[in-house]
Design a protein around this nucleic acid. Structure first.
Length: 560
RNA sequence: AACCCGGUAGUGUAAUGGUAACACAACAGAUUUUGGUUCUGUUUUUCCAGGUUCGAGUCCUGGCCGGGUUACCA
């Protein structure tokens, strides 16, 4: 398939312009800078694809850098999972793995430089006093009484802060900018705070930690980044990013902000995802219902599908919410070409072929993937008693129902035409058995006389069937926007879909599925794409439904 | 409220002063041993008002609407 002529998003346009004008001497260097305080989700995938993608497309490099300046929230557990997920997605930072904490000493020295330049000072106000002194958007802040400390005094205090002489919160280091600035972030922002906390990498070496604003641009600078690509909420921070680089007179990358990814029926907030996991609303960070990369992986998503999706979403400067259906289409498109077909019955009802000899069975060849001749064939056992899907039969079918009904003939995939002759119902009217006759001349599924049937059903031989657990997933939330709550007393959690997981405990599978290894992906014919779950064992196979197939009949039912 | 950013079919995007277009969705049809896939067709668009210009989705002014920020988080 030909790649469509990719139009350039505005970030790539900037990169191309810079290449053309020689702005960075033809060098392109980006970075993906996650904070190790949570698991990566599909929103991060967009950023990863953008940063690593641009580097690859323009002959540049992309670093992986952990933005670990807040010891209280960060952990190696997250570092490890992030590296694993970036690799799984298909990207390689080679030897360029960095940590903002690697730069603590340099950052500290630069802070002293700023103090000497009288562009930073130690402020001994409390948190509340600082907040109050900052003013409001409409009124200017008031200068801290400590704003005019001498260079020597500031240096002495700052060094003693580092040496651990003060408790948490006793002092902070602030940039001396402008307390009357209309941009609140520029009203003497905090550069360092005292935190007697153990850092996941530097241990107890430090008790003062730089803030994001003070650390990020300089980290980019140290790594000689050219384009510092981040999400829209950092737009406000760009003046500060620029201020530090200029004040220090160091390499000054260009910060460019793009829109983060939003998807319907789910949410990307790390804080909320953490709440779902800790509150046991889901089964962990890899729960197939949440949009973490691990969740999607367990759900059966391929890195290729996620990358294709990320390439298709817009990179712009305005907030947008992608339809979950677009993501689903990408995995369908990928798996349609790659996943072998199998037959599985999720809600079984028994069919008895009354003219097929009792005790007899035969092996019938079945095509593994009509989209890929190289996938070959397998054989499936056929016998007198079969399972078919309960909703593939109706006693009194409406006009547009093409499947099995009394007196009607349909095809069993790769097997025979069968005609329903009789049904057995229980006292509630529930169908117990469907009695059919088969036409031996239609073996393989073609009628020599050329007669047509309107439906082809999937089926599984009763004596050969493997019983499995199948987990059917639906949207995490029942509303497109989780925040769409009518009652102000309720929060987003009230929109959680109570039916996001439906477990089928005894689905009937064709025997070939019994040996499938964990992670293997299949299309269950006419149902959807499924993969073998991590909980699966040979004794008790467990499958996850990745996504359903498009379903014209389901649409038809919704209409009526 | 102040500051920053943004408004193009239902959704996401393109058009970089020169015929408003693409993908998905929706709808209709063809093909089909999956009501899948594939193919064909149809419907629906520049927030508003002025201005500049031969010509404005694009530039300017004013409004309206939406988002972000107002943490010793990132």
């Amino acid at each position: 398939m030909n790649e469509p002529v990719a139009h350039r998003d505005f970030v790539r346009q900037i990169v191309e312009d810079d290449l053309r004008t020689g702005k960075w001497d033809g060098r392109i260097h980006t970075r993906f800078p996650p904070e190790p305080n949570g698991y990566l989700h599909i929103g991060h995938a967009k950023s990863i694809c953008l940063n690593f993608g641009i580097a690859a497309e323009y002959g540049g490099k992309c670093n992986l850098r952990f933005d670990d300046t807040n010891p209280e929230k960060e952990d190696t557990e997250y570092v490890d999972s992030i590296m694993e997920d970036v690799r799984w997605l298909g990207f390689d930072w080679e030897d360029r793995l960095f940590y903002a904490s690697d730069y603590f000493e340099q950052l500290y020295q630069w802070a002293e430089t700023l103090i000497r330049l009288e562009k930073a000072y130690v402020c001994s106000l409390t948190l509340d006093e600082i907040r109050a002194g900052r003013g409001t958007p409409t009124e200017p802040g008031i200068a801290s009484p400590w704003r005019s400390r001498t260079v020597d005094e500031n240096l002495d205090l700052f060094r003693r802060m580092r040496a651990g002489e003060f408790p948490d919160g006793a002092h902070v280091l602030r940039a001396k900018i402008d307390m009357g600035h209309p941009h609140m972030l520029l009203r003497d922002p905090i550069m360092y705070r005292i935190r007697h906390a153990e850092h996941h990498r530097t241990g107890n070496q430090w008790c003062i930690y730089p803030t994001y604003d003070y650390a990020h641009g300089q980290s980019d600078s140290i790594e000689q980044i050219t384009h510092s690509i981040c999400t829209l909420e950092f737009e406000n921070h760009r003046p500060l990013y620029d201020w530090y680089c200029q004040a220090l007179g160091i390499h000054h990358p260009q910060q460019i902000e793009f829109n983060r990814l939003n998807l319907t029926y789910t949410m990307m907030s790390k804080r909320r995802l953490l709440e779902l996991v800790k509150g046991n609303y889901v089964r962990g960070w890899d729960d197939p219902r949440i949009p973490t990369l691990r969740g999607l992986r367990r759900r059966g998503y391929t890195p290729e599908a996620i990358r294709a999706f990320c390439a298709s979403v817009g990179v712009t400067k305005h907030n947008a919410t992608m339809d979950m259906g677009v993501l689903e289409n990408h995995i369908r498109e990928d798996l349609n070409k790659r996943a072998e077909r199998r037959m599985a019955v999720l809600d079984p009802v028994k069919v008895i072929i009354t003219n097929y000899p009792e005790g007899q069975s035969e092996e019938l060849p079945a095509v593994n993937n009509p989209e890929d001749a190289a996938a070959g064939t397998r054989s499936v056992p056929f016998s007198r008693e079969l399972w078919i899907e309960r909703d593939d039969f109706m006693v009194d079918p409406p006009k547009k129902f093409f499947r099995l009904a009394p007196g009607r003939e349909v095809r069993l995939r790769w097997a025979y035409f069968i005609t329903c002759t009789h049904i057995v119902q229980d006292s509630q009217g529930q169908v117990q058995e469907i009695h059919c006759t088969y036409d031996p001349a239609t073996k393989g599924g073609d009628a020599p006389d050329g007669r047509k049937v309107k439906a082809t059903l999937h089926w599984v031989s009763v004596p050969h069937a493997v019983t499995a657990e199948v987990r059917l997933y639906d949207h995490l939330f029942r509303t497109e926007d989780p925040d769409d709550v009518a009652d102000p007393a309720l929060d987003w959690k009230s929109n959680l879909n109570p039916n996001s997981l439906h477990t089928v405990s005894s689905a009937k599978l064709e025997p070939a599925l019994g040996q499938a290894p964990q992670g293997a992906r299949f299309q269950f014919e006419r149902l959807g794409y499924f993969c073998v779950d991590a909980d699966s064992t040979p004794e008790r196979p467990v499958f996850n439904r990745t996504v359903t197939l498009k379903d014209q009949w389901a649409k038809e039912q919704v209409k009526s």
